[in-house]
Amino acid sequence: MAERSGMVEKRGLGLWLTHLGLIIGVLFIFFPIWLAFVASTVENQDIIRPPMPVWPGDQMIENYTNALVAGINAPVALMLFNSLVMALGIALGKIAISLLSAFAIVYFRFPFRQTFFWLIFLTLMLPVEVRIVPTYEVVANFGMLNSYSGLILPLVASATATFLFRQFFLTVPDELAEAARVDGARPMQFFFDILLPMSRTNIAALFVILFIYGWNQYLWPLLITTDPEMNTIVMGIKQMFPSGDDFAHWPTIMATSILAMVPPVIVVVGMQKLFIRGLVESEK
């Protein structure tokens, strides 16, 4: 970041007000998460007689263990695993098929190339939410309800990643491919030896974005996983609320909410640079 001149920057009281404003913002962002965390460390009794405490209690280990091992409909550990499979499947699956097709579209001339490109391009325009009913029927007809492939495949069918890799491949100098040809590299050797290693950063950035996209899916798993054992954690939370007037078991629900947040938050904060890069690039 460039050195900023002091000219327009605030000092003294102004500086403190700036910090104060930001801290209020941070607190606003954090407050719901703090409450959820507190709720995940106390007994249900403390919650259902409001107001609930503001500081964490001593039930943390019990609540989390209970959620992970027993849960309400299914052990949360299992749901975490399902979410992980789904998020990894979507991220890796999408990256793999997109790399291949972007490579083909950029580096080859073949019949219907433009047609393929436009077909793929069209998919950018339609989120899964718009075509849920027929997509559900397709998945049901394939017998893929309550299966990982049913969770993953329909969400892999969009072309954002193909489009991004195409853009990136176009910026790779032509001479590199020529040099590789002179060196005797076959197309797939060029792909694996040169193009793939050069795309590492882009792949990683996209992985972060897609992992979070996959992890946070709600509507689709809600539709196709009727078996609690196949629930993902993000959709499983809602299933923990009792129907009717019963009291919800808040500590378990809140522990599950926290658990649902942890993996994507680790990915975002841990790979902040890649995440920001991926975000900016996927919106270009």
């Binding site: 913002g25 941070v26 962002i29 719901p32 998460i33 409450l35 959820a36 979070i212 992890w215 946070n216 899916q217 709600y218 993000v234 959709m235 939370i237 809602k238 629900i253 909410s257 649902a260 947040m261 994507p264 938050v265 990915v267 975002v268 904060v269 902040q272 995440f275 920001i276």
Partner: peptide
């Protein structure tokens, strides 16, 4: 400030 991006809309709803 960036990490609530990682919180799923459904989880935000629950919170």
């Amino acid at each position: 400030l960036i990490w609530p991006y990682a919180v799923a809309p459904a989880v935000a709803g629950v919170l």
